[in-house]
Design a protein around this nucleic acid. Structure first.
Lengths: 204, 204, 204, 204
DNA sequence: GCCTAACCGAGACGGTACGTCCGGTCTTTTT
DNA sequence: AAAAAGACCGGACGTACCGTCTCGGTTAGGC
């Protein structure tokens, strides 16, 4: 169809630009981020960025979307035998700097949700959706194998990622300790607590 | 001290401007909001806005900060006898439009958290801080009177507000059903579950 | 008729304001002049200025108009016997600072001529009109008594004032030397030259 | 030297903007002129104007400065044999509309002379300087060839241009008749009159 | 090995919001 | 009622950024 004559677009630049976008986004937030900053960080011209993504929003959207590739795959999830082990194994690598950028980028992106209709559901979904989905899968597996009684797994799976993003918005560091506190203070107790409303008092 | 000469600043206008700010912010997000829009909505000149707040960020910051006044008071919290009753009573009024604006304004403000250092801790804290604090108080009281075993109340109290904001960011409505699902699916089960790690399987 | 209750308007302030206007106008020009500057220079509030003159243009107009009062009167013109003596006598007092302000104020006022229709003919007329008129009177008298042949006195009378203003516009000082050069290099030669076109060469 | 990378600035736009500036300036004066008006008149964006001239004053300054290009050249002055013929030939083309704009623009610019130090000598010099210089050249030539006795040519050359500007300030039209009246009523008589002070009466 | 089309860097351009400043009006307190 | 102080409305100024366009120069392919 397209004879594809002429110089080919340098495909390797896409990734460089997206990385630069994430870096600037994490540091400056959406407001403070400038296409010029991204281009400078990536070491190329503004036009090269615009040739690939028509607007700042598109650029940021794809940059955050790419976060879902390559790190969390449902078929490579840990299987330690207990949910706590599984989730801990998943949480630990989030200590590295790459993941810090990831979460802070999502936080920086929230600016757009109100402005750009398309980002409404996509933004956070792309950034932390796979994380949520992985957690949901692990929890459901634990329930299915009888480790816990039936529970509102879908809602529980959102808790850790969302509260991590909330911390990022407040410029607080996302430490493993914090994630583990959520795990032991909210997720596991909730799963142990089961679905039925508690009306009787617990035994003193 | 100062004998206060000259025409007095019309103090009632501050509130009008802040209300207009919240309305525009909730509808357009920080990006889409314009000082002109706010001034037009408030029915006054741009300069009148700038006389009070030097920058758009300052204006939005105070608008959201004011959210913490007048609606949630620790000494007027419900006391129904059970935590579920208390939290339900607190959740229900959040159905009204004023509270919708409040939450959506916080969501619209997140854009700034990365750009403006001052907003880092203040933004969310001012918007939903009192809400979190009230929940924490009610939960602690329930634990203290033996309704639940000891728990990480501080963390649990953040869950409902944060996830509501997260929904607002995604342009989803904050319904009472959603809040109650969080209550019954996360908070109460977690409190019932207690602090100790569960290692044994639950009885089938 | 008017019972004239309340505090009386302090009539002395008008002159203070007008003097301040001239001073600022001469220094800053019309563009650079601010009502605030005038009020500060006069040591009173802006409103006090506006109560007397509705607009900046009116204020400046009257300030410059007042220049025509009190210093040049047709019935008190010098009469030395020769035109050169008369004009020299009239020129000399223009060395003082008051007259410098006068001329520089006229120059500073020119800004308005294009903007404000009313100032079109009034502006320069008020500032230098009496000066022109006095010169015209003296020249006509000299012609009438036979000191010079008939000449286009009306036009000649404009030359010195206009070129002085032109110098003021260029921020050059208006010295007596300059005025005398005009007198001896333009006015008197022109009057000597008479009205008839010169076609024959002058005798070497 | 500089390899001139990037899109080239459209050089033709400078002239369009300057023409628009002169047109608006002549019509509205400096006060009434707006960068938006100029941009609209020139058919381009405000930023395009500001990219070339940082301030309104700079723009107007250059617009008026450009007036000195292309119309009065010392090596193309008329040579009719008599000074009156030369000056008349030079005056006549000033009837056209382009020259009207020129003079009125200079008049409109005078507003700035006091505000902007740079305009002090440049403004009028650029607008009417070449005109003055041309007149001075023609007069000096006439004196040199013995058409007139020695005279203060430098001062005389300023008379016609300055009084024309003065008329423009007063919103009066600059007609050929007016210029000729100056020529026959001031310039030529003054040249005929010569340099020596007249003390004796002219013969009846 | 050249031609051609597309790429790239650099920056002009249109448009729009920001935050400042000033002219002119209005309000409050003091004299 | 005038005066001092200053809030208020309206609008222009000059800056910065977004997204588009244009320009030289370079780099693939296809012939």
């Amino acid at each position: 169809m397209s004879p594809q004559v002429g110089r080919k677009r340098d495909g390797t630049r896409d990734a460089v630009i997206l990385d630069a976008t994430l870096a600037v986004l994490a540091e400056q937030g959406y407001e403070g981020m400038t296409i010029d900053m991204v281009a400078a960080q990536a070491g190329m011209a503004r036009a090269t960025v615009y040739r690939r993504w028509p607007t700042k929003a598109d650029l940021v959207l794809e940059a955050v979307s790419r976060l879902s590739h390559g790190d969390v795959q449902l078929d490579q999830l840990p299987d330690t035998g207990s949910l706590r082990g599984d989730l801990t194994a998943m949480i630990v690598p989030f200590d590295d700097e790459q993941q810090q950028i990831r979460i802070h980028a999502v936080a920086g992106l929230l600016a757009l949700a109100k402005t750009d209709e398309r980002l409404a559901e996509t933004a956070t979904a792309a950034g932390i959706g796979p994380w949520i989905e992985a957690g949901r899968f692990l929890m459901q597996r634990a329930v299915d194998r009888g480790e816990f009684p039936p529970a509102d797994v879908a809602t529980l799976a959102e808790v850790i990622p969302m509260l991590c993003v909330a911390r990022a918005v407040q410029r607080l560091p996302i430490t493993r300790e914090f994630s583990l506190a959520l795990l032991d203070g909210v997720i596991l107790p909730a799963l142990r607590g089961g679905r039925e409303p508690s009306t009787e008092r617990h035994p003193a």
